[in-house]
Computed example of a mutant assay.
Amino acid sequence: MTDELDLLKRDWQKKEVNLPKLSYSDIHKMIWKKSSSIVKWILIISILEFTLPHLLYLLPSMQDGMEVYKKLGISNYLLIVSIITYSAAIYFIVQFYKRFREISVPDNSKSLMNKIIRTRRTVKHYVIFSLSMIMLTVIVMVIGVFFSHDIADAFPDLRQGLQNISEEKLRFTLMASIGGFGVVLTLFMGCVYFLLYGLLLRKLNKNYRELRQLEI
Rank of each mutant, 00 (worst) to 15 (best):
I103L: 05
F188Y: 11
Y69Q: 15
S104E: 06
L5D: 10
F147W: 11
Q95S: 14
P156C: 01
K34P: 00
S35R: 01
E167N: 06
E215R: 01
R159Q: 04
Y126C: 07
R101W: 01
G198T: 08
C191G: 08
T85R: 14
M62P: 01
L79I: 02
V184D: 02
Y69A: 15
V142Q: 12
Q95A: 11
I31T: 08
Q95N: 09
I143E: 15
G180R: 01
V192D: 04
R101E: 00
L185R: 08
R101G: 01
S75C: 09
I216Y: 00
E215A: 06
C191K: 07
L200R: 01
I31C: 04
M135T: 09
G198N: 03
L131I: 11
K70S: 13
I151T: 08
L112H: 10
R171S: 01
L78E: 02
L7E: 15
V183A: 14
K124T: 10
F96K: 05
A176G: 03
R202G: 03
E67G: 15
I178Q: 04
Y126R: 04
F96I: 07
I139N: 15
Y86W: 15
V145S: 05
E67S: 14
Q160R: 01
D150Y: 05
L131F: 03
N114S: 08
G182E: 05
S35T: 11
Y91P: 07
L201P: 04
S166W: 03
F92K: 08
D26C: 00
E167K: 00
E4W: 14
T173G: 12
Y57I: 08
C191S: 11
R118Q: 07
T122I: 07
V138R: 09
S35N: 12
D26E: 05
M175A: 12
W12K: 00
S109V: 08
G65H: 09
F147C: 13
D150I: 02
I80D: 03
T51N: 10
L136V: 15
I93E: 06
F188K: 08
F96Q: 05
L55Y: 02
H28W: 07
Y126T: 15
L201V: 04
M30A: 13
S166I: 03
G65E: 09
I90E: 08
S46W: 09
F50M: 09
I134L: 14
L58C: 04
L170Q: 09
E215Y: 00
L5E: 12
R10W: 04
K124P: 06
V183K: 12
V39D: 07
F155D: 05
S61H: 06
E67Q: 13
N207I: 07
D64C: 04
